[in-house]
């Protein structure tokens, strides 16, 4: 290669050099792939993440129940009329992450709020009924959530997200979806 001058026509040696280099690069990537992929959730973890059924009947008004889907905490909150009203009447301009309460519950079943239970800041579990809006208060870094699980103040960037769920009947929901 040292004898090859830049102006010279590409030679068979240049071709072999580039082809060898390209093959080696692909080889490195192919070997690296399994070493990265093994970090992903394994088949057992995925299988254990099947949807769950939650019976709402025993949850009384004003109560928050904690369930787990895919090892992730979910709050199921049976809201009181006052809490629903409070969530509905909050002007969107007061919200760091504006979202009307109607987008966060199923129409006609406004008493049921189902949200992920980990603070959207760094994942701590907020304390029930605490904070200025009696929604949740995260003890780790001071995020305050209202009765719709929306961020009101503190470092959390977004509202508590909604897990995928649907009502089977009046007192039963299915949380989750297939992986």
């Amino acid at each position: 290669m040292a004898e090859t001058t830049p102006t010279a026509e590409p030679t068979r040696r240049d071709f072999l050099f580039i082809a060898t280099g390209a093959t080696a690069a692909i080889g490195v990537a192919a070997v690296a792939w399994p070493f990265v992929a093994q970090l992903a959730p394994d088949a057992e973890v995925i299988a254990a993440g099947a949807p769950i059924e939650v019976d709402l009947a025993p949850i009384s008004e004003g109560q928050i129940v904690r369930v787990f889907w895919r090892d992730t905490l979910i709050f199921v909150r049976h809201r009181t009329a006052e809490e629903i009203e409070q969530a509905q009447e909050t002007p969107l301009s007061d919200l760091p992450d504006p979202e009307p309460d109607s987008d966060r519950v199923v129409e006609g079943r406004e008493q049921w709020l189902i949200v992920y239970g980990n603070c959207t800041h760094f994942g701590c579990v907020p304390l029930d009924f605490q904070g200025q809006y009696r929604g949740w208060f995260c003890p780790c870094h001071g995020s305050v959530f209202d009765t719709s699980g929306r961020i009101r103040s503190g470092p959390a960037p977004i509202n508590l997200p909604l897990p995928p769920y649907e009502f089977v009947d009046d007192t039963t929901i299915i949380i989750g979806e297939a992986a």
């Binding site: 990265v36 970090l39 992903a40 959730p41 394994d42 973890v45 993440g49 895919r70 090892d71 992730t72 980990n118």
Partner: peptide, 13 residues
């Protein structure tokens, strides 16, 4: 984060 955890939250993996 999922690849750090090896799951959907901090767990055995």
């Amino acid at each position: 984060v999922t690849f750090l955890w090896g799951g959907y939250s901090v767990g055995n993996p």
